[in-house]
């Protein structure tokens, strides 16, 4: 394992602990480390790898897989993914173990229910921000609206709805 990969893995481990709420929070920091400070990737590489991670199936965590892959090849990608999910794996495991034991206790009930307002608010915020970023043409607004309506009104799986959207876009309508 080369030195660059080791240093990348160290950064990813630490940043994983900072990524409260998901990978979007650490994008700036990730770019600083990978592009500006160490020059492991060009800015264009960074952006296109992020777009690719978003366009492919699976969690956005895959961006980290692609960064590792671009810097150190196949095993770089696999190891980057593992190191990035390790801290959250351990913390979630800890909470899952306590869940049943703590479930009768008042502080745990407060913890579980007390964050629901923030969760619902953050979710709605993401929906607003993503809509503002994506629904930039009249057709895109319609695509967003129809996708929301189809999801609420039918039992179509999300992937079918996105496939429909993709076909609309591939015909150059957007």
């Amino acid at each position: 394992m080369d030195d660059t990969l080791l240093r990348l893995l160290g950064h990813l481990f630490v940043q994983s602990l900072l990524a409260i709420g998901g990978i979007y929070v650490i994008l700036g920091e990730l770019q600083r480390v990978v592009v500006v400070e160490n020059g492991w990737l060009t800015p264009e590489d960074f952006t296109s790898l992020f777009a690719l991670a978003q366009a492919s199936p699976g969690p956005n965590t895959l961006f980290v897989t692609l960064i590792g892959w671009r810097i150190s090849g196949l095993w770089g990608g696999v190891l980057a993914t593992l190191v990035f999910v390790l801290p959250s794996l351990m913390l979630s495991a800890l909470i899952a173990r306590g869940w049943t034991r703590w479930s009768g206790q008042r502080w745990f009930a407060v913890l579980r229910r007390g964050l629901i307002p923030v969760t619902v608010g953050l979710l709605a915020s993401s929906a607003v921000l993503l809509t503002l970023a994506a629904a930039v043409t009249p057709v895109a607004v319609i695509v967003t609206g129809v996708a929301a309506a189809l999801s609420l009104g039918t039992r179509l799986p999300p992937v079918a709805i996105l496939a429909l959207a993709g076909v609309v876009g591939a015909f150059g309508l957007i």
Binding site: V120, L123, L130, T131, A135, T144, A148, L162, G166
Partner: peptide, 23 residues
């Protein structure tokens, strides 16, 4: 490029639906 943009717009719509469903 068009397909990627449209999928992003559709994904925003799905997130709106999830927000409403959990709300």
């Amino acid at each position: 490029q068009g397909a990627v943009r449209a999928v992003a717009a559709g994904a925003a719509g799905l997130l709106i639906a999830v927000s409403l469903r959990l709300l």
